[in-house]
Design a protein around this nucleic acid. Structure first.
Lengths: 359, 359
DNA sequence: TTGTAGGCGTTATCAC
DNA sequence: GTGATAACGCCTACAA
């Protein structure tokens, strides 16, 4: 049994340089082509050489250089993922399953968040494209012309999640936002609420617009007037929502219920309610978009519209995987999922039927 | 069939082939070296050529190929980031600021989460290393030998966050977990609790061990015995914590208070308390690790140990940036930050000073 | 100031 | 089955 001289590679090792295919080839006394063949299983190699090469790889500690490989084959097996806010549990849930599915399929994910900032967004996408990602999954913060230009000229497949972009025809998986909010608003109406405050997200996003449209549609369906003083436009984040709710709560003709167009904002709303000295649901009702894992254990138990986060993530990942493996030129596929209204405790009938009236 | 395939290949290639430096050079009638010079600003170029090249770049829509560049210069300007659970608000907060700081410094971040799974963890790190990241920021799920070997042989700087690893001497930023839990436990003791249940995270992690050590230390300091029946070992996630809390709550000699070693677990604890028909804090007190943005607006208002997430993220990012820009060989730096006990409402004195004078 | 040529580590196309 | 060798797109001495 011959032993491979460990001393021979010292020179290279001292420079901290990682071993290359050539090193393996020399050590196993074969050509790089053969090494490549066993590493990739691309062409059959005789058992003898194969084992010689494999032990050489072990000994040297060879790892194939993905950068060089990518340069050669023109693919990075990396997906760029951009969401507006990674601090938002909805997005983290989705990101988590996307990451999981993609990992299983052999893709890495490069993550960016733009903090709902439209300029940062463009920068992030450029950065992702710059890294030569094979595909893009994004939840756009807004729809500026720049974004559209970038996506149009980008040669990689894109799938939009959560939010659509006018004029961008790509695969997408979104929620039926209008319907979801329509249902939720109808529910509030059915409980007797007539003045329902609405804390909106940014109307730069399709979700912002569609959810508001759902609210209006419910009002219309009930032949109720739309009072724009009841609507406050925020940006999907807690701080703005706090201010917006404050505005609503201190104005003349305070609403008896408030709808919050996402999860982060409802926290701002609740803080405003607390700071103003009211209680939910005793003094004011609240319904929100997006569910929380803790929603049915901390009080008030929030009545919310839950999104199928698991499915959204799975489908988005699958769409990009499909696109990348063959279905290059097929027409865009759009998946629209349904939300689910979870009725808990934060929205009560109005006017309140006194609970301890006679008992 | 074959024919068709070839055609597709051809077509795709012709459609998606992006312009190279050579194309720019030819279009501007200069050499690639000059193009490279203006793209990178590496050597001065005459104004005339520069503008000619710049317009050519515009016209052609040239983007430099980072893969080729990386292969040449040996750096990807990408940092690998691995956390145990991206669904955990603590990690997302930290990830968010790391991503932000790193982006500002011109780095992209490649994100992985291992779901507290030690095998997945090794896989993820290999994947990251495989992608030739310039550095690693990780919160290890556990400390198996494989991980240590990988990190030891990895030639990129690593910074550990949140959790340390025995035998891995790298930069790190962590919390003084022992002290934080010691303080929190002392607080519970000061309120009169004597039987304090402890829901632990995995003892495979330094945080799991240190936090438990803090609990014991507080008991010791108060000359109280350590009762191992009061301790349940979980894995930092809601589900296990639920079971653990159930165990605790249904056993003889039920504790009057429970400490939860992280944020996800406290939700499981609260669910168990609810399902068993108890109320917090009326029937049982709870203190937890990690704060929530909603903790002071939903009830019970949780008494928790808050971590300085902003600082943790900033410091971690800065450590890796520093390491990457020069300070290559300096000894590892370890930052230990202090937690802050936020006293709210979920932990009451024991025995309760009866508010309505019963019996 | 500008151009030429060699090489980064792989993969793929050929010969043998 | 195996081995030279030419790309992949870019950077950087070294020349001119």
């Amino acid at each position: 049994m011959k032993r491979f001289g460990e001393e021979m590679q010292q020179r290279r090792k001292s420079t901290r340089k990682s071993p290359t295919m050539l090193d393996v080839a020399q050590s196993a006394k074969v050509s790089v082509a053969t090494v490549s063949a066993v590493v990739n299983g691309s062409t059959p190699v005789s058992p003898e050489l194969r084992s010689r090469i494999e032990t050489a790889i072990q000994q040297i500690g060879y790892k194939r250089n993905t950068i060089a490989r990518s340069l050669k084959i023109g693919t990075t097996r990396t997906i760029g993922l951009m969401v507006a806010d990674i601090t938002n549990p909805f997005f983290t849930d989705v990101v988590s399953v996307i990451q999981d599915v993609l990992h299983r399929a052999g893709y890495a994910v490069m993550l960016c968040c733009n903090d709902e900032d439209i300029n940062l967004q463009d920068e992030q996408i450029e950065l992702l494209l710059d890294r030569m990602v094979d595909g893009l999954i994004i939840a756009p913060a807004g729809e500026d012309a720049h974004l559209k230009r970038i996506l149009a000229s980008a040669s990689v497949p894109t799938v939009l999640i959560d939010r659509l972009c006018d004029g961008i025809e790509t695969d997408a998986v979104i929620l039926d936002n209008r319907r979801a909010v329509l249902d939720a608003t109808a529910y509030m109406l059915s409980l007797g609420h007539r003045r329902i405050g609405y804390i909106s997200g940014s109307l730069e996003t399709s979700t912002g617009r569609e959810r508001l449209a759902g609210y209006r549609a419910a009002l219309d369906a009930a032949a109720l007037p739309f009072d724009e003083k009841l609507v406050q436009i925020g940006n999907f984040r807690e701080k703005d929502a706090y201010k917006a709710a404050m505005q609503l709560l201190t104005s003349a003709g305070r609403p008896s219920a408030i709808f919050s167009a996402n999860n982060l904002m409802v926290i701002g709303v609740m803080k405003a309610i607390r700071d103003i000295g009211l209680r939910c649901p005793d003094d004011i009702s609240v319904v929100s978009f997006d569910d929380f894992p803790w929603a049915d254990v901390f009080q008030p138990h929030l009545t919310t519209i839950a999104q199928p986060v698991q499915t959204i993530g799975e489908q988005a990942a699958q769409l990009i995987i499909d696109r990348l493996s063959g279905r290059g030129m097929e027409p865009p596929r759009r998946l629209m999922l349904q939300g689910r209204l979870i009725i808990r405790d934060s929205c009560r009938p109005f006017p309140l039927t006194a609970p301890h009236a006679t008992a």
